[in-house]
Amino acid sequence: MFWGDVDEQLAKLPAFLADTDPKLPVIRAIGEAFADVVAEFGPGKVPWVLTQYNIIGSLAELQASALSRFTAQADTLRFFAADRLKVSAEDALPRVISYTCIAAVIAAAQAWAGAGSDRGPLAPYVLRALAPLADGFENSK
């Protein structure tokens, strides 16, 4: 129940990644895909888990359920990054890219949720959070 909207949108991530321009650098592609994933979240639609987590009851339970979701998404990003970079998914670089991107998206979602009713859509927050990563990782290969 707490994750319903989030899970529904995250299920679309593989398709959005597959639809990105193959010439686009990996982090920029991930940014575009995540912007599509979160496109429906805005001031009128905020995932319940982002704003009501303090009344859920068991913070440890919520964190455990979040971690499993983040890990699954990181695996999706890891395989995408490895394929895009033509390296093994077991190499460090795709792992670093995937977990760093997940951290940036989480930070963006938290900042967006905390911005209150003037928050606007989530996608620009995500793109801003991923932009510095793109600048750094794009130069690492």
Results as ranks from 00 to 15, higher is better:
residue 2 F to T: 06
residue 54 N to K: 13
residue 4 G to C: 06
residue 6 V to Y: 08
residue 12 K to T: 13
residue 12 K to C: 11
residue 51 T to Q: 05
residue 15 A to W: 11
residue 30 I to F: 07
residue 74 A to K: 10
residue 110 Q to K: 15
residue 139 N to L: 14
residue 58 S to V: 01
residue 71 T to S: 08
residue 127 L to A: 11
residue 5 D to Y: 03
residue 97 I to C: 08
residue 41 F to S: 02
residue 36 D to H: 13
residue 130 L to W: 08
residue 65 S to P: 00
residue 117 S to Y: 13
residue 129 A to L: 10
residue 74 A to R: 12
residue 118 D to N: 15
residue 115 A to E: 10
residue 29 A to N: 11
residue 109 A to Q: 04
residue 37 V to A: 09
residue 40 E to D: 07
residue 124 P to W: 01
residue 100 T to V: 03
residue 25 P to F: 12
residue 99 Y to K: 02
residue 105 V to N: 06
residue 15 A to M: 11
residue 118 D to F: 14
residue 50 L to C: 07
residue 13 L to S: 10
residue 34 F to T: 12
residue 5 D to S: 11
residue 34 F to N: 15
residue 4 G to I: 13
residue 56 I to V: 04
residue 92 A to C: 01
residue 22 P to K: 15
residue 23 K to M: 12
residue 74 A to I: 05
residue 75 D to E: 06
residue 32 E to K: 14
residue 70 F to V: 03
residue 95 R to E: 09
residue 108 A to R: 14
residue 96 V to C: 00
residue 117 S to K: 15
residue 74 A to C: 06
residue 119 R to W: 12
residue 46 V to A: 00
residue 3 W to A: 13
residue 16 F to L: 10
residue 61 E to C: 02
residue 62 L to H: 06
residue 60 A to C: 08
residue 5 D to T: 00
residue 57 G to W: 01
residue 58 S to Y: 04
residue 86 K to T: 10
residue 9 Q to E: 10
residue 36 D to K: 15
residue 48 W to H: 15
residue 4 G to L: 14
residue 26 V to M: 04
residue 87 V to L: 03
residue 29 A to K: 11
residue 113 A to F: 03
residue 61 E to Y: 03
residue 88 S to C: 01
residue 55 I to G: 02
residue 2 F to N: 08
residue 1 M to Y: 03
residue 106 I to F: 13
residue 106 I to E: 08
residue 50 L to M: 07
residue 29 A to Y: 07
residue 139 N to R: 15
residue 38 V to C: 00
residue 53 Y to H: 14
residue 63 Q to P: 04
residue 28 R to D: 01
residue 79 F to M: 01
residue 73 Q to R: 13
residue 25 P to C: 11
residue 82 A to N: 02
residue 102 I to D: 04
residue 136 G to I: 11
residue 102 I to V: 03
residue 95 R to W: 09
residue 139 N to K: 15
residue 129 A to Q: 12
residue 4 G to T: 12
residue 13 L to C: 09
residue 64 A to N: 09
residue 121 P to R: 13
residue 100 T to Q: 03
residue 140 S to M: 14
residue 31 G to N: 11
residue 6 V to I: 15
residue 39 A to Y: 05
residue 107 A to Q: 08
residue 105 V to W: 11
residue 54 N to H: 12
residue 78 R to Y: 04
residue 35 A to P: 04
residue 99 Y to G: 06
residue 21 D to S: 08
residue 7 D to M: 08
residue 83 D to I: 02
residue 139 N to I: 11
residue 51 T to F: 01
residue 63 Q to I: 09
residue 55 I to N: 00
residue 93 L to H: 03
residue 86 K to F: 02
residue 45 K to E: 07
residue 22 P to S: 14
residue 107 A to M: 09
residue 56 I to H: 11
residue 2 F to Y: 10
residue 28 R to F: 04
residue 18 A to K: 14
residue 64 A to Q: 14
residue 22 P to T: 06
residue 93 L to K: 02
residue 22 P to Q: 10
residue 92 A to P: 01
residue 88 S to A: 02
residue 71 T to I: 14
residue 91 D to C: 00
residue 105 V to G: 09
residue 76 T to M: 03
residue 78 R to V: 04
residue 24 L to Y: 08
